[in-house]
């Protein structure tokens, strides 16, 4: 039974949908969207919050009894910066979970594979559950799994692009080869893209821009929740395999006797 439950590092989460907290028109709308999405893992950019301030506008809108607050290191240009940010979050009382993002280019925010790998090594040794954001690179995914990352988070398309699952061929390989959950992160622009990722065999999806910048983010959060649930049902129902061409329903060789 393929349920809408996700296990990462031995911990069970109630949904295969994860949410980012950037770009929302207000923290209140963000909070309502989180609620409607059914997600349990919520990622927050450490550069956007004052992690030591409980009154921080974003943090005060995330109930850590209900959600796993997953700090991310977005904006870090190299290993050192990412490691420092992760440690800062843990020192401030966050659980030792980190969404590792090393994104030296400020425009496409594409992950630096070399610095990400180095930072992951350090943070895993340091006792963190590391969820690295990577390009859809199957070899890098295996290497990160080998050193102890608890998921891999390959991108479907560049962050914020809403372009959907453009890295599909490499994602298929990552999903086929991975022994840790595969979370498709970035680029998902519509609920149908999220459903596709799960139908392909991804374990979860992470959505931010598509929800936060919708005309009605709360309604869109609900739409993504349904899409993820729909994919779970579809997988349980047994997805019919794709056929390359039409197949006649009455057999052409039915006349054969033996």
């Amino acid at each position: 039974m393929f349920t809408n439950e996700l296990i990462i590092a031995g911990r069970k989460f109630r949904s295969r949908l994860m949410l980012g907290t950037g770009k929302f028109p207000s923290s209140k709308i963000m909070q309502q969207a989180l609620e409607e999405s059914g997600a349990e893992i919520i990622t927050v950019a450490l550069r956007r919050v004052d992690i030591n301030d409980k009154q921080d506008d974003i943090l005060s809108h995330i109930d850590t009894n209900k959600y796993l607050l997953l700090p991310n290191t977005s904006g870090a240009r190299d290993t050192e910066e990412a490691v420092r940010l992760a440690r800062l979050a843990r020192a401030a009382g966050c659980e030792p979970w980190v969404k590792l993002e090393v994104t030296p280019d400020p425009y496409y925010l594409l992950p630096d594979p070399i610095e990400t790998f180095k930072a992951a090594e350090i943070l895993v040794k340091d006792g963190f559950n590391v969820l690295p954001y990577i390009n859809a690179d199957p070899v890098l995914a295996k290497r990160l799994e080998e050193i102890g990352c608890v998921t891999v988070m390959p991108l479907g398309a560049p962050i914020g692009s809403n372009r959907g699952i453009k890295t599909i061929e490499n994602l298929r390989i990552i999903i086929e080869q991975s022994n840790v959950p595969v979370v498709v992160d970035a680029g998902i622009g519509a609920p149908s893209h999220a459903a596709l990722a799960l139908e392909m065999g991804a374990d979860a999806v992470l959505i931010n821009t598509a929800i936060a910048t919708a005309d009605n983010p709360v309604e869109m959060a609900k739409a993504f929740r349904y899409a993820v649930e729909a994919a779970c049902h579809a997988i349980n129902a047994g997805m019919p395999t794709e056929k390359l061409r039409a197949e006649a329903s009455s057999p052409l060789t039915g006349f054969l006797r033996d």
Binding site: S27, R47, E81, L88
Partner: peptide
Amino acid sequence: LKKKGFDPVFKDFDQTFMGG
């Protein structure tokens, strides 16, 4: 800003980046 539906972002960087 809020009345017009925009989120004021006060903080979008952290001195921790510069720590090293």
